[in-house]
Amino acid sequence: MNIFRLLGDMCHLVAIIILFLKIWRSKSCAGISGKSQVLFALVFTTRYLDLFTSFISVYNTVMKVVFLVLAYATVYLIYLRFRSTYNSESDSFRVEFLLVPVAGLSFLENYAFAPLEILWTFSIYLESVAILPQLFMITKTGEAESITTHYLFFLGLYRALYLANWVWRYHTEGFFDQIAVVSGVVQTIFYCDFFYLYFTKVLRGSGKMTLP
């Protein structure tokens, strides 16, 4: 464990908690892409199957359970509890255009043709594109509540910190996970446009983020 990865995990946790509390307290999921949240729940489900087969550390196990519970709880809030506030017409991204290529690639490019390994690879590839329905929804509606932009900021920052973690691990322990690194770079690139708007609009105190 290193500071970059720990900070990254904390940013990830903060992002997930920000979103959950925003929906729970406002009793509304307006402007939130339910599709992205379902994809994230799928990412955690396919990645954390090793919860039952390999023990890494208490921290690792606890965080996996927390991420799984919060991810499914968020999906529950969107599609069941506050479904009347869900903008399904704005959440129109065709997720099959993500799932099919990601599933195909995870069979082609992986470390081993074994079920758990292919599912892990699927989760890595899927995570890099899982936010696209949410970003697409914001471009479609032309705006995002500031709390949603803070959620996206921490979510984007988490994987950027993981990039630093992989540089650190490469230089200190020769660790290099090519699949995770390439996907992490792609994932972080998708946030660049958002980061630009976030720093120029939201942090200027304009509250809402309205797209040009």
Binding site: S54, I56, N60, M63, Y111, E117, N165
Partner: peptide, 10 residues
């Protein structure tokens, strides 16, 4: 056999 990288990250 190919040593699988232990996925020790979240």
């Amino acid at each position: 056999s190919v040593q699988l990288p232990r996925h020790d990250e979240l």
